[in-house]
Computed example of a mutant assay.
Amino acid sequence: MTETNPLTTDWTSAQVAVMHRLRDWVVDFGQLTQHLATWMALPGADANALGQIIWAAESGAPLSPAQLSRQIGMTSGATTILLNRLEAAGHITRSRESADRRRVTLRPTSAARDRAQEFIGRAGTEIAEVLRTTSPEELEVVAMFLRRMTDAADEANLRLSR
């Protein structure tokens, strides 16, 4: 892979526009997460964590506390305190589903999942409409581009973690 210095490269206006749109999406998604926090009567960090737990479980790849810690950028101790709050409020369960009984799996309760889905039904209409009206070809190109961007960010995060 060629080393590209992001500070000295001459970027095209299209490349700059893409980076701005990605930043805008991150900001807007953060605001949606804050609305979810209000909807669920949770602090922002708790709503973010609950959203990650629900998304992972619904995708068939439930998270462990360590995976959640990495995703939300918290220490394991802070994540444990957050998980204790979510569990006490009836939003999540922790179970040992693996052959390795030390591994804990996080799952949303059905009540938390239903409440979050009710929010998505109200908050996601505009996003759903864009997805519904975008051609399969365009979606495929965007998905491939975002996969490459995500892979690049994953590589940078791995390099920076060493």
Rank of each mutant, 00 (worst) to 15 (best):
A61C: 02
A123F: 04
S13N: 10
L7A: 11
Q117S: 14
H20I: 08
G124M: 03
G51R: 06
V130M: 02
A89S: 09
G124Q: 04
E118F: 00
N84L: 06
V26A: 15
L106Q: 02
Q67K: 10
A14Y: 12
R70A: 12
W11Y: 08
H20E: 12
D24M: 11
L50D: 04
R107P: 00
T38E: 12
L50I: 02
R102G: 03
A153V: 13
D46H: 11
N84Q: 13
A116T: 15
N84E: 10
A57C: 01
L106M: 03
L131M: 06
W39H: 14
L106N: 00
I120E: 05
H91Q: 08
T150R: 12
D100Q: 13
D10M: 13
N5Y: 11
R94A: 13
S98Y: 13
L22W: 06
S13V: 11
P6R: 07
A37S: 06
M149L: 10
F29D: 15
A143P: 01
R162M: 05
I120F: 08
D28I: 13
T38V: 09
V16S: 14
L158G: 07
R113S: 09
R103S: 06
R102P: 02
H35K: 10
M40G: 05
A111N: 08
M19R: 15
D46E: 13
S98L: 10
L86I: 00
L63A: 01
V141Y: 10
A14I: 12
N157T: 12
L160G: 05
R85C: 00
M19A: 14
E140T: 10
V27K: 14
A45G: 03
T8A: 04
A111G: 04
N157Y: 08
E140R: 11
N5S: 12
I53C: 04
V142Y: 07
G124V: 03
T134W: 04
G51T: 00
A152N: 08
A116Y: 12
G73N: 07
G90S: 03
T75I: 01
E140P: 00
G73E: 06
A153E: 13
I54G: 00
L63G: 03
V130T: 03
R107E: 06
R132P: 05
V142R: 09
R115G: 08
E155F: 08
D10G: 07
R23E: 13
N5E: 05
L7F: 15
L131Q: 02
L7I: 08
L68W: 01
A56I: 03
F119P: 03
L63R: 03
R21P: 02
I92W: 08
E137Y: 09
H35G: 09
S161W: 05
A41R: 15
V18D: 09
A99M: 10
R94K: 15
A78Q: 12
T33H: 08
E129R: 14
G73T: 05
M1Q: 08
